[in-house]
Structure formats: structure tokens, C-alpha cells
Design a protein around this nucleic acid. Structure first.
Length: 109
DNA sequence: TGAATGACTTCGG
DNA sequence: CCCGAAGCCATTC
């Protein structure tokens, strides 16, 4: 592990924790907010590393169209969707309904 | 060192 | 928005 990655991970955690209840955001939005707009994949990678950290609501982070691309990396295949649904987020075919409505932009914080 | 991989994004059709 | 292809970048082998 390099110190640069740790810094990046920390930033991702910070942003992810600030996602309000029942709201979601995208990897690209977080990456852009961190100044690494071209490293959206690394955000997802950071989420994978944060899977062991329950303080990071990784289930509130999806791709740009609101699809739960990372649900397969979660503990169990339906946990991610269940968590979102329990927060009032409606899911249809692995995709968030009214995604644009509940989308939370980290830059607004 | 180089090649492959991926919880993504953007572009052209 | 759907589809295919290319780009990006840190990590892994």
C-alpha cells in the first residue's frame, strides 16, 4: 500500500459518509469531487477496500445511471438492494428509480 | 518492466 | 437510453 492510495481512500470514505440517508451518488461524482475525475474506477476500488468498513455506506454509491453495479461485490447478492430499499430508495432491475431525484452531489456539501 | 483487470465514463452511431 | 469501442488509472500477477 502506498500513502497516496491511503489518502485517496480516506477522501472517498469522508465523502461516502456524508451521503444523506436515502440519497445516492455516483463514482464519477465522488472522483470529480476528489479532483480525480478520471479515476472513477479507483473510487469503486476504494469501495471494495471499504467493504470491511461499516462506517462507509458503499451501498449508496452506484454508477452514473444508477445501476447497482457493485452489488455482486457486497456480502450476499441482494444486500445492497435491501439496504437501499430499507432507506426508502426504490430499486427496479438493479437500477435506482428516480435516480436523478435522489442523486446527491458531494460538491453541494 | 509489462500485460491484464475492473464497484467507471465518455463518445459516436 | 441502448450498443460498441476507446480512454483512464491504480492495483495485481
Amino acid at each position: 500500500m502506498t500513502k497516496t492510495s491511503e489518502n485517496f481512500f480516506e477522501k472517498v470514505y469522508e465523502v461516502a459518509r456524508q451521503i444523506p440517508y436515502g440519497r445516492v451518488t455516483s463514482y464519477g461524482a465522488i472522483a470529480k469531487y476528489l479532483g480525480a475525475a478520471r479515476s472513477a474506477r479507483m473510487v469503486g476500488w476504494a469501495m471494495n477496500a471499504s467493504s470491511n468498513d461499516d462506517t462507509v455506506p458503499a451501498h449508496r454509491v452506484v454508477n452514473r445511471i444508477g445501476v447497482l453495479t457493485g452489488k455482486h461485490h457486497f456480502q450476499g447478492t441482494s444486500l445492497m438492494q435491501q439496504l437501499l430499499e430499507s432507506e426508502g430508495v426504490e430499486i427496479k432491475e438493479h437500477k435506482i428509480v428516480n435516480f436523478e431525484t435522489i442523486f446527491w452531489d458531494p460538491a453541494k456539501q
